[in-house]
Amino acid sequence: MAVQRKRPALLKDNSWCAGCGHGLFTRLLHESLEELGYDNNYICVDGVGCSSNYFAATTLGSAIESHHGKAPTIARGVKLARPETMVFTYQGDGDAYVIGLSETLNAAHFADPITTFVLNNNNYGMTGGQMSWTSLPGQVTTTSKAGRDPETTGMPLDPLKMAAQEERVAFAARAALNSPKNINLAKKYIKKALELQVKEEKYAIVEMLSPCPTDWNLTPVQAIRWIEEEAVKYYPLGVLKDTTEGGGA
């Protein structure tokens, strides 16, 4: 049984490392945009970090570059100006969960009809693998060379859980980009989150655990195993909140 598969029209050669989850996410994103008929009517607000490479990975996509952590506030402004356009933020964990924690939670609080996508790779990818608030206890990074010590740096932070508690958040879910099954699930979440924005004017947030082989000092295949074996212990997958019909949770 042959299944037809076609590269999304706007994507081109990207500059992410081999095995990086960002490439996976952009493909899922653009597949969803095409399926919803919005690939010609969207504005992506890039975070700062590896997500800023998104701009160079598309041929005619519309992206606004933001400052560190400020993507949700910019997206709010863009959506106010152009309510007919699909507006979403594309951020990393350092951007959305550390420096932009306030912006992310306030976006969930205001619940403007935008969508937030967070690629959580448990470290600061672009700057060379420093410790993030999402790094796991004992995780070796360039700023926690003996492994993250929860005594002095705290336990992994889970802002997705905080966002899900906000009354007006319609959908909050965590997927992982580490296996065909999980990638297909991530696609489902992404599409649902975007659909909620344009059909019901609701706010949704989707986090994806994303492999970062370069900064984890692992091969790509080891990296996806590490997500499976380590990251999910602190960041369990699944739907945290779903207010839509039949959504439960």
Binding site: M1, A2, Q4, R5, K6, R7, G19, G23
Partner: peptide, 17 residues
């Protein structure tokens, strides 16, 4: 067998079927 798994897991859109 053209199952599409390679397309699904590829971060760099190498494959098309």
């Amino acid at each position: 067998i053209f199952c599409g798994t390679c397309y699904t897991v590829c971060p760099d859109t190498v494959f098309e079927i």
